[in-house]
Amino acid sequence: MSVDIYKINPEFRDIMPKEILDLEDNATWYGEKRGINDLTDKKEILEEHSLCAGCPEAAALRYILASLPTPSETVIVNSTGCTSLMFPHIALHTVHSLFGNQNAVASGIKRVLDWRFPDKTKDVVVLAGDGATIDIGLDYTLQSFFRQEKITTICFDNEVYANTGGQESGSTPKGQVFKMAPKGKVFDKVPMWELAVTSGCQYSVKLTASAPKSVAKVVREAILIAREMGPSYIHLYTPCILEIGLDANEGLWEMKEQDKDRFVSFKYVSPEAEEYLKNCKKEGIL
């Protein structure tokens, strides 16, 4: 596979809609310096989405897609949840796995890609919610870290099972009340970013999606490390504004608040990975 798969045969240009012509003419693909600055004037890989107005998860996905080092060589594995409503609209290879087994599926895909395309760099990125990553799929998530699979796992943590009406998840903070969890959460939030370190991740970061440039930097670093070193993990706060009773324009405010509270920055980079990142900077890859 190469970026050629997006080149339209000239015989059909007159019947193709503008959004597809734009993907060929004005999107950033393989080999170009790409990043979130492209969001202002380039064609985005996410055509449109069906999430709620003002949903921070949708913004976060746009930042992530704009930050992928080589989108045409990237396979995204996703799981059931709000995020899975967006993936059908992405002009990339995406695989929807069963609820929770996304890291097992991603492990298989990565291994097969390495076998099938030994001379190419293929990135496999898992994008799943907190229910899939931390509750239902915790076993698969941690086992992929134990096995040192070369994949990047990004958890969109909205601290709730949102699209099924508001049930508490392992990632819900203690005491939080939801429509379908009226007594309040009894236990503490699972510190997944710390479990990732304990389980062997070379890179583990916790942050909110309040600052696009920070998200972009972390995504690039995590993918580069996964290519060479081993598993990398990003824990990203993307609140469900509906379930916590905010308006469409209040998601950013909520994330900025949490930058100072539950999602105060956490970053672990293994010594080997740190050395590797330094080299990437020297070589201009990062």
């Binding site: 050629d4 997006y6 080149k7 339209i8 045969n9 000239p10 193709m16």
Partner: peptide, 15 residues
């Protein structure tokens, strides 16, 4: 498979 010029066969088929 024929709209995009992803291999030589696809280019021939388009014409």
């Amino acid at each position: 498979q024929v709209l995009y010029a992803w291999n030589e066969e696809a280019k021939k088929k388009a014409t």
